[in-house]
Nucleic acid binder design. Structure first.
Lengths: 154, 154
DNA sequence: AAAAATATGTTGCATTTACAACAATATTAT
DNA sequence: ATAATATTGTTGTAAATGCAACATATTTTT
């Protein structure tokens, strides 16, 4: 049945989407099993805020690649749980909502990282660090190429 | 602000999810621009059926990694457009819905492939074939590891 | 033979997600 | 100075997605 043409299930597009989808599933299940009170998206946002203190919402949206609407909603939840604080400030003379992680947020982040670390490592330990790194680098240049082509308006 | 811990935006999880999301966006925009009358998911299903004649719905769901419900809906659409035919058959003595691609479906698939090919190649041409292949292989073993861990019930 | 478990597909619903429209403010162009 | 454009965030809505429940039929267990 197979011919020499490149079919969907043989493409890098397929491999990427499937792996990414699976990874998300694994992580979601892990978060549920460990009874972590945050969604993965909330965790990703919290972690990103923790290393980018004073970032504004739109810039965060670009980093976590959600649109502005969803980023705002995720932050609402994190703020309501007391893990971040938001404050009005200016960036290029424009009013923006900046944010920072709270003490409680830092503590929570640390707890989650400790809980999750060994589980996530068990998934990647079968693959050599070199391979992981190489994949990550290639993916990044791939992603940067994609960014040139895609029309995003965040 | 950065410390030596591995943060979300430095992880392979991040790189995978972002690249995959971007790729989907690029492909969706491409399909719209070229006025292709199928969604990417429909295209993926159609292409997969074309190389797996007589596959049943559940097995297809496993390949395209959608759940049974969505796979059924995608196939409804493809059948309604006349690109596949479905028929009842048995597999291990159980009644299943099998399917095959129609003449029209084959023609459509060919048209889409011709339209899309050069555009998709332009995205990956900046990256060497070796790198692409290596990434694909590593992703596959990564995905297989993930499959051992995740609980799927399709 | 009856009951329990398994395989397959469909339906309904709740969540997630993206996109468009809007509001408010600041900058740039005319 | 006034109008047009750009930046940022919020709200509303429609589409996609996954999950649980159901329906049907078959196999396995008791």
């Amino acid at each position: 049945m197979k011919d020499c043409k490149l079919h969907y299930t043989d493409s890098i597009h397929y491999e990427l989407e499937q792996t990414s989808r699976l990874m998300k599933k694994v992580t979601t299940q892990l978060f549920e099993k460990l009874e972590i009170g945050l969604s993965i998206d909330e965790y990703a946002a919290l972690d990103t805020v923790s290393v980018n203190a004073g970032i504004c919402q739109r810039d965060l949206a670009k980093l976590i690649l959600k649109d502005r609407a969803n980023t705002g909603r995720i932050l609402d939840s994190l703020e309501q749980k007391g893990f971040i604080t938001r404050f009005i400030d200016t960036k290029n003379n424009r009013l923006v909502k900046k944010m920072g992680i709270t003490e409680r947020g830092l503590k929570e982040l640390d707890t989650i990282n400790k809980k999750v670390k060994q589980y996530l490592e068990s998934v990647t330990k079968k693959i050599s660090d070199e391979d992981i790194e190489r994949v990550q680098e290639t993916l990044k240049s791939f992603r940067l190429e994609l960014e040139k082509v895609v029309e995003i308006n965040i």
